[in-house]
């Protein structure tokens, strides 16, 4: 456990030492802020539905950009060899990097708390869906981080890692808008697989164990996939 904390804190420091953190967070805030507030006054409603509706798509771009370096950079520089010969297990490494990624995504969401605060000054804001929305956002961020981590473990090229991660996250997000491609009998299963569907449930303020279970399973699959890739490499 201590090893996980050491690895995670090192990864987080790395984010903030290099310019990536600042660039990614600024772009994330610019995109979400712009799309939210340009239509906010037209609807004239004191809620954050618009912000949360867009969040899965924004995150499916932002999170792979955050996670792409976690393994790829180490593989490329060769420090992966050093990491693996230190007294740490595969799980220490994977959890350390995963936690660093999730904390970073949560950190990027933190400044957006100013949106509900602004809105609550303008009108009567229902805090239930907002809290649900943020819980969902963190879960979604965690799921995407796990997927991005897996993509990063596959290749030493960060751009490839980004595109693979983006591809998977984007597909998960848009799956329930592509339902008309699939036969009727599969619709239930397919829509259950979509991340958007579960996220929207939570963002409505309904916290259902099925939705939480979905995100946790995606996290598990992503981390387990990374573990398999690491095993394959040795």
């Amino acid at each position: 456990m201590r090893q996980v904390i050491h690895i995670a804190s090192k990864e987080i420091k790395d984010y903030f030492v290099s310019p990536i953190a600042y660039i990614v967070i600024s772009i994330f805030l610019m995109v979400t802020g712009w799309f939210f507030f340009t239509t906010f006054f037209l609807f004239n409603q004191a809620d954050l539905r618009n912000f949360f509706n867009l969040l899965p798509i924004t995150l499916s771009f932002v999170v792979p950009a955050v996670t792409m370096r976690l393994f790829s950079e180490e593989l490329n520089v060769g420090s992966y060899e050093i990491l693996l010969t230190l007294p740490v297990t595969f799980n220490d490494i994977i959890f350390g990097k995963f936690i660093a990624g999730v904390l970073f995504v949560a950190g990027a969401l933190l400044p957006t708390l100013s949106y509900p605060i602004c809105v609550s000054l303008l009108g009567q804001l229902d805090w239930g869906p907002v809290i649900g929305g943020y819980l969902g956002a963190v879960l979604l961020g965690a799921a995407f981080t796990a997927v991005g981590l897996f993509a990063s473990s596959l290749t030493r090229n960060q751009i490839v890692a980004f595109i693979v991660g983006l591809g998977i996250c984007f597909t998960l997000t848009l799956l329930d808008t592509m339902l008309f491609f699939f036969p009727r009998s599969l619709l239930g299963v397919i829509s259950y697989l979509g991340a958007d569907y579960h996220f929207n449930n939570i963002a409505k303020g309904i916290i259902d164990s099925r939705d939480i279970l979905y995100f946790l399973s995606v996290v598990f699959l992503g981390l387990y996939g990374s573990h398999l890739v690491m095993q394959e490499k040795s």
């Binding site: 790395d14 030492v17 290099s18 520089v77 060769g78 420090s79 060899e81 050093i82 010969t85």
Partner: peptide
């Protein structure tokens, strides 16, 4: 263990 050509973390 010191791997060949010391591949350490460049940014640290």
């Amino acid at each position: 263990y010191l791997p060949e050509s010391a591949p350490l973390y460049q940014g640290m």
